[in-house]
């Protein structure tokens, strides 16, 4: 009888539920063009170049893998929120893009690794995202074009309990409209 009840309840539950999506720990990031390739070094190389306003017509610079604008992630040391020098070219490129496209808007999502309090990690992710926003502002971007938010430890890109994984998750991501 109990089994029958459980089965009926389970059927009801399934009836109520959408088809579950496949496990994808980076649900928010899954449409960003970074590709989240493990070996990818955001900001690496010297491919900083001005983006002409008309350039997006043939291909979206935000999605062009050859364009630094397709790189969206900034990584941090444990318990730290300062933007390392290696990411400054990346932010300069985005600052230029946002300044040249005043209608463009970016959502800056700060993230933390899974260690410690979930709420404190929201605050830590917020501090990271706020730091990126402040830097973009200093580079000339209007505040109205940006929102900085935190996902804390809730949306890890990598789910193993290793330092490599944690380093992937201590991150700020820049997302543009349509990407979140």
């Amino acid at each position: 009888m109990r089994k029958l009840l459980a089965l009926a309840a389970a059927a009801l539950l399934v009836g109520c539920a959408d088809t579950p999506k496949l496990e994808n720990s980076a649900g928010v990031e899954d449409r960003t063009p970074t590709g989240a390739a493990a070996g990818e070094q955001p900001g690496a190389g010297s491919e900083v170049r001005p983006v002409a306003p008309g350039e997006g017509q043939q291909g979206n610079p935000l999605k062009d893998p050859a364009n630094i604008l397709s790189k969206r992630s900034i990584f941090y040391d444990y318990d730290k929120y300062d933007v390392k020098d290696e990411y400054k070219p990346l932010l300069q490129a985005h600052a230029r893009y946002l300044s040249q496209n005043p209608s463009a808007k970016t959502l800056i999502q700060g993230n933390a690794d899974e260690r410690g309090s979930r709420e404190y990690n929201i605050a830590l992710g917020q501090k990271r995202a706020d730091g990126v926003k402040k830097m973009l502002q200093l580079m000339g971007v209007a505040e109205s074009q940006m929102e900085s938010v935190s996902l804390g430890e809730e949306k890890p890109r990598c789910t193993e309990a290793t330092e490599e994984c944690y380093a992937q998750n201590r991150r700020s991501d820049l997302l543009y409209r349509g990407e979140y």
């Binding site: 929102e147 938010v149 804390g152």
Partner: peptide, 27 residues
């Protein structure tokens, strides 16, 4: 609000909440 909104806590009379907002910068 703009930014993050989190960490709700109830006052003992149930009329108010303490929350953490980043709308004015920082948590």
């Amino acid at each position: 609000f703009k930014g993050s909104n989190s960490a709700p806590a109830w006052s003992s009379d149930g009329r108010r909440l303490a929350v953490v907002l980043s709308k004015d910068g920082g948590s």
